[in-house]
Design a protein around this nucleic acid. Structure first.
Lengths: 193, 193, 193, 193
DNA sequence: GATGAATGAGGGTTCATTCAT
DNA sequence: TATGAATGAACCCTCATTCAT
């Protein structure tokens, strides 16, 4: 449904600009160039819009990263790919990251839009598991030294998350790319045999 | 004024639990064991409470870290201290981190509680500058190799921020400490001569 | 037009179930198995549907009762017929009575769906007048004793209305029929010479 | 709480005039001479106001009638008292009867304002039971002939309900009182030995 | 100072109605 | 003729803020 997608796009712009709570349904409608009531033709409530945004954001992320797992390359190379893909993705998100952050905080509080599911937090766990899978793979095929996969996975995520924050605060990060590569190499050197 | 501080503490508990927007003034009053109107004897508005929380949180952080700068130890040692102090601080904050995150997002949007100042974002900049100062110091006294101070400072902050996120999501991080030390050593090795 | 009648039937089912205000045009369309816009091909507004239901309900009632007046039987027999026809009618209406009640209340408030006419209340008056006519007839031809026609007519209506309520609340009234007949006889005995 | 009662009074006036659904909370506030929000200081929702009105109306009715049961008079006299009290009560209610009717219809549909209780319908049942109790009493002490208490109770209620309707439609019922007495006597004569 | 009853602007949501297809 | 997507006025309810006590 293209209209539904159109509304999600408008909602993302509004929420990125105003915040999840301050962004009004009326704003979204105006941003999408439609009437207020039309939003409710596609979403049952504001929380439903939040949920849709969560899905929109997480699907893109997890799918692309999961794809990496299937590639016939070394574990090390997989980590490199995940890293570059993630950074690339973050770079493309721009102010959407503010929404993602709010959604993560919301989820971290245990609050939910949907009874029983915590999409954003689940996505985070899935992401961590994907990384862990790669680490175990590299451990088993002798690429990596005797590491603790869950801990290293957490460290890897911390690395990526930390970078997100810098993007959020320093909008222009062009001259930051080289450092990231260096840091990644340093990280990989640390876990390789 | 101890009553004012009492209200801030109550506000932090409420906002950590409910979120900045969902947390009501009435909740804070109840949490503090006082009347709703009394909150307004000490704060002019809800935004004023936010501002006070920002100050409360940042002051603690910056002061302690700034103290490190004055110590008569090597730049490397200063970074180690800042790192451990920060991690310790993060560890103590617990769910307050959720508030800090919301405040940072708020600030990143350019929204302000107070005309003209962006406390949280300023704190962030100050923090970065402190680290940069140490890096330049280490660079000048020959401790570090030919590095790019702003970039490395950003990387250092990214490292710390990333860790915050892990604390937010994995509440028990006890067996994560060793990894952090290892990672810090790896980081330091990368910039030392 | 059979489609129009089809919609009225659907509307009656919906309004009986949900209430006049809570029953939505969309519900009626779904109940009638047609599109929402189609309802507006046959009715200009929701009030227009109400009006049509009023007419549907009252026409059935008044016509049948008016028919009795023309019969070449005694006044007493006419009252008996009206009574049994009315009770029969009430019995057939079932939950439609809830709608009738709502419409009567609406009319009693002086609210109207149509500028200038108060169908339901008019029907009520007509009904009373029919009964009054019979009473006067019986009075003139010496069947009844010196009664006050308007008052007795009101009492007669009260009797029927009261029965409606019992049907509304006690859905099964099968073993109630005998009592009604007895009560009617008692009533007639009271006005006969 | 006098303010709460004040709001109920205002609500009754508004709902009697406008109808349960058409009467707005804002109307009630204006009618009571208070702010819209103040209504919510005393009632949690519009349904809660409905519930309060139900209780306000039913309490007055049942209590007074129940009192009759305890009197040391014959069953016949009790019925006479209940009848006159009820008619008196109905007479005093005026347009409140329109609200009562709407509430009864609402209850007859099985809709509820409060999970699990159907105040208005319960009141109705209680009323019927009180009458039944009196009938059984009169049956046992030889006052009444071999009657069917539930059926006669229903007939008695039908009689009263029917009168309500006439009050609703013919506002001035002054010259109607005599007829009622006559009708009551006729009714009592029918069940007496 | 402390309080909490009162307030009303504001926002989420519903639904009768319209109209292009 | 039939449709249902689109609309926005209307209304319930929330909650920051005020102020009389």
């Amino acid at each position: 449904m293209p209209k539904k997608h159109q509304i999600i796009e408008a909602a993302i712009r509004v929420f990125a600009r105003e915040g999840l709570e301050k962004g009004k349904i009326a704003d979204i409608a105006k941003e999408a160039g439609i009437g207020k009531g039309t939003v409710y033709e596609y979403f049952s409530s504001k929380a439903d819009v939040f949920k849709a945004i969560e899905e929109h954001v997480t699907t893109g992320m997890i799918d692309v990263v999961a794809e990496v797992l299937k590639k016939p390359v070394s574990a090390e190379e997989k980590l490199r790919l995940i890293f570059s893909i993630s950074v690339e993705h973050i770079n493309h998100m721009g102010d959407e990251l503010l929404i993602v952050t709010e959604l993560l905080v919301h989820g971290a509080r245990g609050h939910m839009f949907d009874e029983g599911t915590n999409t954003m937090v689940d996505m985070y766990s899935t992401y961590r598991e994907l990384v862990e899978t790669i680490l175990i793979e590299g451990l088993q095929n002798g690429e990596f030294r005797e590491i603790n996969p869950p801990g290293i996975a957490t460290l890897f995520l911390a690395f990526i998350d930390g970078i997100v924050w810098q993007y959020v605060f320093i909008k222009d990060t062009s001259n930051f790319k080289l450092l990231l590569d260096e840091a990644l190499e340093s990280f990989l050197k640390g876990i390789k045999l």
